[in-house]
Simulated assay, not measured.
Amino acid sequence: MIYKFRSKAAGDVIMMGPSGDQVLRIIGKTPAPKGIIEPAAMPAAVQAIEQAIVAEENARKQAEADAAAEGRTLPPREAVTLRQRAWPLVEMMKRAHGEGKEIVWGV
């Protein structure tokens, strides 16, 4: 599935299914073909994504430190990090919240 997030406050954000599913779970939404993020929920959603990004980055740093301590190297990280995948949606949420507009997908 492809997610096309839309808001009257910003341009569309398109995410492939697995990335969209991950971000929706992070913000406490069940992945579904249709949905909405209300403006009142956006600050908490942005905070949840930012916390998930920090957790992912800290886990990678710890794994690299553990590997270095054992004299091995880790394979390269994913080509696109959560920070990079989620940034357009976070920016959309900030704009939509500022204008009091919802974000919808699948409609």
Rank of each mutant, 00 (worst) to 15 (best):
A40T: 08
G11P: 03
A79Y: 09
A9D: 12
T30Q: 14
E38R: 15
V23I: 15
G71W: 11
P18R: 09
M42K: 13
W87F: 10
G35Q: 01
G98S: 11
V107T: 06
T73G: 06
M42W: 12
K61N: 10
Q47L: 14
V80E: 15
P76M: 15
R60I: 10
A55I: 00
Q62S: 11
V90T: 07
L74P: 00
A67S: 08
A41C: 05
E57A: 00
W87M: 12
S7Q: 03
A86S: 12
E57H: 01
I14Q: 11
T81Y: 05
Q62R: 14
R83I: 05
K8C: 02
D21E: 13
D21Q: 14
P75E: 15
F5V: 06
M92W: 12
R25I: 08
I27K: 04
P88A: 13
P75K: 14
Q47H: 12
R25W: 07
I2S: 10
V46D: 03
E57M: 01
E38A: 08
M93I: 09
A67G: 11
G100T: 06
P33L: 04
T30A: 15
K4R: 12
V13N: 07
P39V: 05
K34Q: 13
R60P: 03
I49H: 01
E50L: 12
V104D: 04
